[in-house]
């Protein structure tokens, strides 16, 4: 599952993530991270048998965990299916279907925002 983790400044210096990985034997893939003394944000993908338990643990330690279904949202009204975004995606999450419609795979998307910036009609928004 994909989730956004939020750290308060008081726990930034603790080793919660590595402890969690060790205790629950989970796969923990960091897609994006922005951590400073003021706190932090992380976009991660967690999998493994004890994934749910590991999330409970992180929450107990003070990390706010927000599971996300959508990393970005494609605005159907604004999108003209021009495809400018397709070749820019670093993880090939955007594809053109047989009918030339542009489709974003939220499972693959890491929310880097590159397509958001380059979209001529500003039709892709990173979900916060």
């Amino acid at each position: 599952m994909k989730a956004r983790l939020r750290f308060s400044p008081s726990i930034v210096s603790k080793t919660i993530i590595s402890d969690t990985i060790r205790i629950f034997d989970i796969n923990f893939n960091i897609l994006r991270a922005d951590i400073s003394p003021k706190g932090g944000n992380m976009l991660v993908e967690i999998s493994g048998k004890q994934a749910n338990d590991s999330i409970l643990h992180m929450e107990e330690q003070g990390i706010q965990v927000f599971p996300i279904k959508k990393v970005v949202k494609q605005d159907e009204e604004k999108c003209i299916d021009c495809g400018a975004c397709v070749s820019l995606c670093p993880v090939n999450a955007i594809s053109i279907k047989d009918d030339w419609a542009v489709e974003i795979d939220n499972q693959t998307c890491i929310g880097c925002g590159f397509c958001t910036f380059s979209c001529p009609t500003k039709a892709i928004n990173v979900m916060e």
Partner: peptide, 14 residues
């Protein structure tokens, strides 16, 4: 191998 992007909408052209 380099990915390509159409900039004009082929869907809309159709």
């Amino acid at each position: 191998e380099i990915p390509t992007s159409p900039l004009s909408s082929i869907k809309k052209a159709e």
